[in-house]
Design a protein around this nucleic acid. Structure first.
Lengths: 145, 145
DNA sequence: CAAATAAAAGATAAAAAAGTCTTTTAATTT
DNA sequence: AAATTAAAAGACTTTTTTATCTTTTATTTG
């Protein structure tokens, strides 16, 4: 079990892919995105539909249509993707799954995991969607295999 | 989605419960454990069977039987439970689910998540199973609701 | 406006995780 | 030794997650 759900892993990779592919205008089709991040195409289609509805990616139908990101979207933090897909359990939930876990009646791991959850949130909040465009274009970073 | 699977959450809570309940000798039955950590009894039974097979908890059948932890088991780190139940994906896996993600061809989040994964591993490695016995006996820490 | 293109929507299907129930085995007590 | 107790084992069910397929809607271009 990773930190994110499979759906969320695909979502982040897809958004990174769309971001760097459409950095200089243009759109990219679902086929190319799926191939570019090595994901099942119909499943990714569902995920991108959802992200599109939520305004995290933009899309256009018809010839020359496809997915893209506007200037605002490029500046959004990764937390927006994660919250849209996985919710905020990763940032706010108890490590041991206790509904009532809090400062008043903490689970044994509460204090320590509060710090770690905070660090994950901080990392995803300060990392913007467009941050890796250059590295991806240059092939320094990978989004598949 | 939390950090651990539901199964692993139950496993850690159950082991903490057994640890503090049997700190001065004695055993505790599955019914009492399930009630004490607010988990479905038959499901927990499966989990404890597995942990018992793997030597993380001890068990005894028959009257006055039940689960307990020997001195060695109390000194084991939480990583032993997590690895037994969820494997080591949390400590070693790529945040974006890439099989080939590494220093050579890293995903965009590789460097940052390496640090966080390391901190989680460090925390679980230095925290021993018996660590919270006193807090649990005194009711400072909670394992249910 | 017709044809082609590409995403959106909806209905299913397969796999994995979570949870339940029944029978068996082992140990203890009388 | 028989009865009782409690975990182990195995088969099964439900729910959630992951994945697929088909039809519809919107847009563009000739």
């Amino acid at each position: 079990m990773g930190v994110f759900s499979k759906t969320c892993e695909y979502a982040i990779r897809a958004v990174f892919f769309i971001a760097h592919k459409t950095a200089s205008g243009g759109r990219v089709g679902i086929k190319e995105v799926a191939a570019g991040i090595d994901s099942p195409e119909p499943f990714l289609a569902k995920i991108l539909q959802d992200l599109s509805r939520k305004g995290i990616v933009q899309s256009a139908k018809g010839p020359n249509g496809g997915f893209y990101l506007d200037a605002d979207a490029l500046k959004r933090p990764l937390t927006d993707i994660v919250e849209a897909v996985d919710g905020n359990a990763l940032f706010t939930g108890c490590a041991l799954g206790l509904k009532q876990c809090s400062e008043v009646k903490p689970c044994p791991l509460h204090g320590q995991f509060k710090i770690i959850r905070g660090e994950i949130h901080e990392l995803l909040e300060t990392t913007k969607i467009g941050k890796f465009n250059q590295e991806l274009i240059l092939g320094i970073n990978a989004l598949k295999k």
